[in-house]
C-alpha cells in the first residue's frame, strides 16, 4: 500500500517513548558547590546543551526529569537532597558530577562530607573531574541518553 513519498517507519511504543524521553531531559538546578559554575557553562552558549534537548534548567523538582548533583554534598544537605529527589516525578535520572559527589574527592578525610552521593540517591551516570569540563558533562548527558534508549556505549 502506497502512503505517499515519505515511506513508513515501524517501531514499538516503548522505543518511541524512550526516544522522546531521552531527547527532552529537563535538568533540575542542583548546584551545591563550585561544579555548578561548570554546569552553568554547559547550559550557556559555548557548549550548548540545548542541542540535546536539555535547555531548560527547572527550579522546581516537579517539572524536571534529571538531577545533576553538581558539587560537594554535605551531611546536612544529604537529607534535603533525598527529599528533593523524591519530589521529582518518574521517570527520573541522576548524574553525579565531580569527584566530590562520586567518592568525597579532596574532602575524603573531612567530617562533614557524604562520601558518595550514591549512598543517598541512585546514580545513573558518573562524570569524574574536579570540576568536569562542560564537554565532559555533555558527554555524560549523551551517555545517559544512550542508556535510556538502551543502546550500548561503544
Amino acid at each position: 500500500m502506497k502512503t505517499g513519498d515519505m515511506g513508513v517507519k515501524t517501531t514499538t511504543l516503548e522505543k518511541a517513548l524512550e526516544w522522546g524521553r531521552s531527547n527532552s531531559l529537563w535538568p533540575l538546578t542542583m548546584g551545591l558547590a563550585c561544579c555548578a559554575i561548570e554546569m552553568m557553562a554547559t547550559q550557556a552558549a559555548d557548549v550548548d546543551v540545548a542541542r540535546f534537548g536539555s535547555e531548560i534548567f527547572r527550579n522546581s523538582p516537579r517539572q524536571s526529569d534529571l538531577m545533576i548533583v553538581a558539587g560537594t554534598t554535605t551531611k546536612r544537605m544529604a537529607p534535603r537532597l533525598k527529599r528533593i529527589y523524591e519530589e521529582m516525578p518518574y521517570p527520573k535520572y541522576v548524574i553525579a558530577m565531580g569527584v566530590c559527589v562520586i567518592q568525597g574527592g579532596p574532602y575524603v578525610d573531612g567530617y562533614s562530607v557524604v562520601l558518595g552521593v550514591d549512598k543517598v540517591v541512585p546514580v545513573d551516570v558518573y562524570v569524574p573531574g574536579c570540576p568536569p569540563s562542560p564537554q565532559a558533562l555533555t558527554y555524560g548527558l549523551i551517555t545517559l541518553q544512550k542508556k535510556i534508549r538502551n543502546e550500548t556505549d561503544r
Binding site: 551531611k75 546536612r76 544529604a78 537529607p79 534535603r80 527529599r83 567530617y111
Partner: peptide, 8 residues
C-alpha cells in the same frame, strides 16, 4: 575517626 551521620 568517630564519624557522625545526620538525618532529618
Amino acid at each position: 575517626n568517630k564519624v557522625q551521620y545526620v538525618s532529618v
